[in-house]
Design a protein around this nucleic acid. Sequence first.
DNA 1: TAGATTGTTAATCGATTAACAATC
DNA 2: TAGATTGTTAATCGATTAACAATC
Lengths: 205, 205
Amino acid sequence: MAILSEKVLRRLTFYYYILVDWAAQDQTYISSPMLAEMLGVDDSQVRKDLKLLNNNGKNKVGYEVQELKASIEKTLGLKRPKAAFIIGAGNLGAALAKYDNFAHYGLKITALFDNSMAKIKRQINGHQVYHTAQLMTWAHKHPAEIAILTVPASAAQAAADLAIAAGAQYLWNFAPAVIKVPHGIKVWYENIMGDFLSFTAQMPS
Amino acid sequence: MAILSEKVLRRLTFYYYILVDWAAQDQTYISSPMLAEMLGVDDSQVRKDLKLLNNNGKNKVGYEVQELKASIEKTLGLKRPKAAFIIGAGNLGAALAKYDNFAHYGLKITALFDNSMAKIKRQINGHQVYHTAQLMTWAHKHPAEIAILTVPASAAQAAADLAIAAGAQYLWNFAPAVIKVPHGIKVWYENIMGDFLSFTAQMPS
DNA sequence: TAGATTGTTAATCGATTAACAATC
DNA sequence: TAGATTGTTAATCGATTAACAATC
């Protein structure tokens, strides 16, 4: 299968949300114009996207809901287990550690790390919080390919460097900061504050 | 000023993060090749973006850091106060209510609302949690243009309908669900789970 | 001055939309 | 059958990159 663009992947997740809903309501088929209307995109776009996953629709009725759902699950790797540690045990880090839904999507949180002595030794939703100085040793015993960075902007680069040294190859960065990483390391900017700003920038002043 | 595309706005937030950092280090100028390198985009892209804000660079030295920072702050409306209520006082809602940084970006949380009796009457970071049945009355006295939806997917549509009835025109939706809204209402999908899925879909299986 | 940088136009690239024959 | 829908190609649209004269 060809590599899917970020745009396509993002739409796939929206199709998926809708399919989960339709499956729960025992709907058998869904058509491209229906999906298109719900997402606000063109229906030919939907058909193209689904064709990329080698799904075939039926004329007059559309696509089989269960089949399509399974196909997106496979493409997005929902069944593939992935381990991650969290650096930054503040509010956001804790919220993510409490978010049990991650497990449904294949993500397993191994532990949290923080610089603050006040936070270590606590447990959050069954996950232990350790001092960052222990991360290298921990990651050696519990390898994780993903690091979740929920630190302040000023600590983001140091956290990224540490995560990479500990073997993480995918950084999910929630800090409002641009970080520099070696070639081959992937960074996803979960730019919540930035998203908010671009959202509100649409408002009339 | 022309309406800025979502792509441009997103880049502006990244420039902003860098400028905050450079300003803190008392740097006077920054050039487009420097910004481009940090963001991984073309330098002509940077110059185009900055030109959209009517910023003028100086040959040989680049752009004035403080001036550019102020200009982006103005464009993104960081100084314009905006009120929001949160529907869903679970972990994510609580994390957002605790995130004091919002205030720096002009967002004021007025209150939280939840369906669960167990959660109401609590305070989170000084913000009161009320029952959703009280939202209409509350919003009448404390109008807010933004509603932050941090409910489970199954409750997303109902929360959206309620928020709109209460006068919100901008919905910041953290629930993994596609919602239907009347024309004129803006929705921003903060698709954390979806972002994670598109991120990990890049991984080799 | 020489050389780095801006501002801007033209070229390229990729994503979205339109259109329509084929299908059941 | 008639009509809704798929699958796919062509056309359009928008965003990114390349190129370079002008500048200080």
